[in-house]
Write a protein that binds this DNA or RNA. Structure first.
Length: 255
DNA sequence: ATGGTCGATCGTCGA
């Protein structure tokens, strides 16, 4: 089973990229973030024509998540207890008996801002939701744009980014509280290397210069970690014309 | 140098 995550930064602009990537990579599951469109204009027909099923939760202009899968995603959840947040950042669904939780984590702007506080509160509520889901489902994958670089290996210039947004101790502690529920960062099961990134800022020619962060993650429950056969980042789509600023991250399991 | 580039939308915000 091949499970991937990709922040597409507007599915309207990136639909052809997604279709091309589905055809070449043939994932069983592709979780999208930042579709930036309402459900009534979601390109369901085009995705189904490519041989996939899809569920989605979108809004105008901002956010938006979707789960594309060869098997029909079932039992979807878009709203979680106590959050009271209309933003479409969360989508849980079951695919091939694996509970998939697709997250577009709040960016947080900068430490000390209201948005940063909101990010930490949002992560706290989501952590409780994941805990509940893990109590209900045997196999859980939590993936998406976490907007957190787990440690300094995931940062091109750790000194420059020290305690900056996406790299603060508080954000990393919040991520660790999710991992402490019994989840693994699947990429780190197989790779110790620094300097492997999933996002590069559009500005300053960041991709060509390697000015990236690894903020897109595929977490799997501890029991699933034994079954991970590959975990990697496909930076090819970041080289395509008019790319998203993120590129797909992929984890493969032997069943 | 605290910049820069995108996307949605149409002046400006979010990332």
């Amino acid at each position: 089973m091949k499970i991937a995550s990709w922040n597409v930064n507007s599915l309207k602009v990136r639909l052809e990229h997604v279709l091309q990537w589905l055809e070449s990579a043939q994932p069983d599951v592709l979780a999208l973030q930042e579709t930036k469109m309402t459900d009534d204009v979601f390109p369901q027909t085009a995705i189904e024509a490519a041989g996939y099923q899809v569920v989605y939760a979108g809004q105008k202009t901002y956010n938006g998540v979707a789960i594309i899968a060869k098997d029909q995603p079932k039992d979807m959840i878009t709203d979680i207890p106590d959050l009271g947040d209309p933003q479409r950042r969360i989508l849980a669904a079951t695919v091939n008996d694996v509970r998939i939780i697709d997250l577009y984590v709040v960016n947080g702007s900068a430490p000390g801002t209201e948005k940063f506080t909101y990010k930490l509160n949002w992560l706290d509520k989501v952590t409780r939701f994941i805990e509940q889901q893990m109590a209900q489902f045997d196999d859980v994958v939590v993936l998406g744009d976490f907007n957190i670089a787990p440690d300094d290996r995931d940062v091109h210039d750790p000194d420059k980014w020290h305690e900056k947004i996406l790299c603060t101790t508080e954000e990393r502690q919040a991520l660790n509280r999710i991992l402490d529920l019994g989840l693994q960062d699947s990429f780190r099961l197989l790779h110790d290397d620094a300097g492997l990134f999933s996002w590069w800022d559009y500005r300053m020619n960041g991709f060509v210069r390697g000015l990236g962060l690894r903020i897109d993650l595929v977490l799997c429950s501890d029991e699933m970690s034994e079954a991970v056969t590959a975990a990697y980042i496909d930076d090819e789509p970041r080289k395509w014309e008019r790319p998203s600023d993120h590129t797909p991250v992929i984890t493969e399991f032997y069943w």
